[in-house]
């Protein structure tokens, strides 16, 4: 689900990028003439309120305005603030990486971030900027009706500008999502490697989730370190929570077992489910020399026996 979303964001970005490059190549011809100050800033400033009203109307028509996740007043505020920032920044020139654009870019990134938190899709987030095109172009058309050359020029400039804004929005959207994924991954890693002391000299490691190389490395290191720290002679690796075991996972497990043996301790693998036992045999993985048990209780009783402990019942079962 998350993956599909990222793919969609990627396609959206590619689409916008291709449009921007198209706009750029066409605009090159007129670039020399645009050296004179663009009239966009001027028009933006003069018709701020009208443009904002039309923009909100447009947003509502496309569905964003009716969304319960964001109120109309909030939307109005955002459009108004963006227009103020845009008209100020546009007056300084069309280079969005310059200092004058910082406030606008920050604002867009903030909007993007809040959209992510409210659960909007990348499409809906991008629509915020792109739905401004129609009112702006309509305004340009009205203002420059007599001067066709200037109208074409300003349209290109405006397209380029809004596409850049769209790119920034989507990039911020994607970055927020990626940060979220990274944070969750980190949390998962931290959560998934608890080494538990079962008894004097017996450690247990309940593994949960898919075993990849990075996780195995962390698991192996923390387990080996605990063995050194506690001087435990037996380690039980419980794989009840591992959904699937393929050849790679089996190899990781074998490596861990070998490393534990090299340290001078012994290892039991427990929690092998019937399906996993079948898969291991079908894959032809050789688990010889590794003690495996069906559940943790069996592994613990074997471990206790190996260390010379005995468990006795002091009260008869009723």
């Amino acid at each position: 689900m998350l993956h599909a979303l990222i793919m969609r964001v990627h396609t959206a970005i590619q689409l916008i990028q291709s449009r921007v490059s198209l706009a750029k190549s066409s605009a090159r011809v007129t670039r020399e003439q645009t050296c004179r100050k663009s009239r966009i800033a001027e028009i933006l400033k003069a018709h701020q309120d009208d443009l904002a009203a039309e923009w909100v109307k447009n947003l509502q028509a496309t569905g964003t305005g009716k969304d319960s996740r964001i109120s109309e007043s909030q939307l109005r505020e955002q459009t108004k603030e963006f227009l103020v920032l845009l008209s100020e920044a546009a007056a300084a020139g069309g280079d969005v990486h310059s200092q004058a654009w910082n406030a606008t870019v920050d604002f867009l990134e903030d909007v993007s971030r809040s959209r992510v938190q409210q659960g909007f899709t990348s499409e809906e987030t991008a629509r915020f900027i792109f739905s401004f095109k129609q009112p702006l172009f309509a305004r340009l058309r009205a203002e420059l009706a007599k001067d066709h050359e200037a109208f074409a020029e300003e349209t290109w400039a405006a397209t380029e500008l809004l596409d850049k804004m769209g790119l920034i929005t989507i990039a911020a959207f994607q970055k927020t999502r990626e940060d979220l994924i990274n944070r969750q991954q980190q949390e998962m890693l931290e959560l998934s490697t608890p080494v538990v002391k079962m008894w004097d000299g017996i450690l247990a490691l309940p593994m949960i989730g898919t075993l990849d190389s990075a996780r195995t490395q962390i698991v192996m290191e923390s387990l080996l370190q605990r063995i050194v720290d506690t001087g435990a002679e037996l380690a039980i690796i419980d794989i009840t929570g591992v959904p699937t075991v393929d050849t790679l996972v089996a190899q990781h497990l074998l490596k861990t077992v070998t490393a534990i043996r090299l340290m001078g301790a012994d290892c039991i693998i427990s929690g092998v489910r019937p399906q996993i036992a079948q898969t291991i045999v079908h894959l032809g993985v050789d688990l010889q020399g590794v003690t495996t048990k069906a559940n943790l209780a069996d592994a613990l009783s074997l471990a206790l026996k190996k260390l010379g402990f005995a468990v006795t019942r002091t009260k008869a079962a009723n």
Binding site: M220, E221, L224, G231, K255, A259, L262
Partner: peptide, 23 residues
């Protein structure tokens, strides 16, 4: 044997069969 050494040996494919190890 230190954990780092054990991991290195495993990655090198040396499991030292037949050598008795102790903690």
């Amino acid at each position: 044997m230190q954990p780092a050494v054990a991991i290195t040996l495993v990655e090198l494919g040396l499991s030292l069969p037949g050598v008795k190890m102790a903690l």
